[in-house]
């Protein structure tokens, strides 16, 4: 169109000049064209967001992943001083049968300077203090801590050197929080349901 004289149009295009004139209509304040631009732009942005939504949401946990419910743990298998590791919601679950000495040590540290202060009693079910049931992933970056290492006689994460005490509380190292305690309900003295209080 660049070397076509304005308004010449194509053969038979008698409305060409009229169309150009219409487009050049002096803009006084808002025009109908402004309204069309804003409305069309808003519809495009809104439509884009609505289109993007399902593509982002599909990455969230699917229904079957969310449906991973609870597990029942047979406590008769775990002698005092022993620890059972199970898989719960894709993560390790530590079920520890603590000895009276370990419980006493955990309680004695309630008053120590703690990074994430929590008494031992808040981490176990009253009357079942020997059973310490925790999610076995380090609250730093998700490695699995091992029992028996570290400076506090509890768990030690080999990845970045976080030390947890015998109550699973963070004492030293980069982890910000205590090992997570999931909801636990004792169905009987020998069976615990994890995932539902």
């Amino acid at each position: 169109m660049t070397d076509t004289p304005a308004g010449a149009g194509y053969a038979g295009d008698i409305t060409g000049q009229q169309a150009i004139d219409a487009a050049k209509e002096p803009a006084e304040g808002e025009t109908r064209r402004d309204f069309i631009h804003i409305a069309a732009g808003a519809a495009a942005v809104g439509g884009g967001v609505m289109l993007a939504w399902p593509f982002i949401a599909q990455m969230n946990p699917a229904a079957d992943t969310l449906a991973q419910g609870t597990i029942d743990v047979d406590l008769t298998k775990v002698a005092p001083g022993q620890q059972l590791s199970l898989k719960f919601r894709g993560k390790p679950l530590f079920v520890r049968n603590r000895t009276p000495a370990e419980i006493a040590r955990a309680r004695a540290d309630d008053d120590a300077s703690l990074k994430d202060p929590q008494p031992d009693s808040a981490r176990v079910v009253a009357g079942q203090e020997q059973w310490l049931i925790m999610i076995g992933t380090c609250t730093h970056l998700g490695c699995v801590p091992t029992h028996g290492g570290g400076d506090y006689g509890g768990w030690f994460c080999p990845c970045h050197g976080s030390h947890y005490d015998i109550s699973g509380r963070i004492r030293k190292g980069p982890a910000p929080k205590n090992l997570e305690v999931p909801p636990v309900a004792f169905l009987s003295p020998t069976s615990a349901r994890v995932g539902q209080a």
């Binding site: 982002i56 990455m59 969230n60 946990p61 699917a62 992943t65 991973q68 919601r89 894709g90 993560k91 992933t137």
Partner: peptide
């Protein structure tokens, strides 16, 4: 959770 598509 969004990135992992689950809790682990």
């Amino acid at each position: 959770t969004w990135l992992q598509g689950g809790f682990a």
